[in-house]
Design a protein around this nucleic acid. Structure first.
Lengths: 157, 157
DNA sequence: ACTGAAAATTAGAATTGTTCTAATTCAGTT
DNA sequence: AACTGAATTAGAACAATTCTAATTTTCAGT
């Protein structure tokens, strides 16, 4: 993988942020300015699966007083209230994902980009043998390989 | 999950360690005393999916001079030479697994134990939609829930 | 609007798991 | 026995995250 640090360039498309507010309240959370910003940033950048650090930088651009601790606090709250999912790939920094539909994550090993693959895995038909007595309440599927953009580059060389 | 720290009590069954030696050499690695111990510990405790720290403590019991850095070095070498796999669950410490057959990992959310589920996932039939152009070279499935032992306790209460 | 309690935010320190560094030891040749 | 590169080692450094204690904000009840 080339340089994962230089991966993400944020160009916010600025969707209607009102939705953020409403959903935060619906989820039973106090809709504070910081949570609005953090969740808003995440909604605007869902495709990028940003890390806490990337979210912090972007949030800071909108609200300069915000602190890293708050970004972590907000993210934790959003995760606990099922508005956001954590994505863990290797031991890299946790990424955050506001797509709550069941889906898999694909990591391109060349460019480091993470892509959502829609669908769902039923434990018993996933290809793995669940021994009797195990109650599976959650599944998580990660795939790795080469994304279309990088595959093309590969051919060109 | 109760107390993951107090999870694993090592009671080494001490299998034939000769196999470790042979496989290290086969894999193209110098069979040093430290690698033998580290891989041996891992083979003896495959079921526990130990962390580097747990491996270190056990290795130290067999070879008191060994250092943490060496445990990491050995584990890295074993991973690079396909004798051992890393297991990542949340952002918890990396666990190590000498079972190189394809399998899924199940984490019991009550006791923290990790169990192997045999099988394999073919990307296209796993339940997820792989968009055209993506080349998937590796899949990783993690499940969570309650293990049989904990489920039983649950009922008893 | 005003007040008090509980919740949220903040800066910075602390912690955890891991990687790096530079010095030493070791194994296998010449 | 001397040489060379690989492996080991202790300890420092590092990155991501969590904790702490002080301050500010929110919201419910007046």
């Amino acid at each position: 993988m080339k340089d994962v640090k230089a991966r993400t360039v944020f160009v916010p498309p600025h969707r209607e942020r009102g939705a953020a507010d409403a959903r935060i309240a619906e989820a039973g959370l106090r809709p504070t300015a910081q949570r609005r910003v953090v969740y808003g940033v995440l909604l605007d950048h869902a495709k990028e699966h940003p890390t806490a650090d990337e979210i912090f930088m972007q949030a800071k651009a909108e609200k300069p007083e915000i602190s890293m601790a708050t970004v972590y606090n907000c993210l934790d709250a959003l995760v606990k209230h099922h508005l956001v999912k954590q994505v863990h790939l290797d031991r890299a920094a946790t990424r955050y994902c506001p797509n709550m539909d069941e889906h898999a994550h694909f990591l391109c090993e060349m460019c480091g980009e993470v892509t959502d693959f829609d669908g769902s895995a039923k434990p018993r038909t996933s290809g793995f043998r669940v021994p009797r007595g195990f109650q599976v309440t959650q599944t998580e599927m990660n795939m790795r390989g080469v994304c279309p953009a990088c595959a093309e580059q590969e051919v060109a060389r």
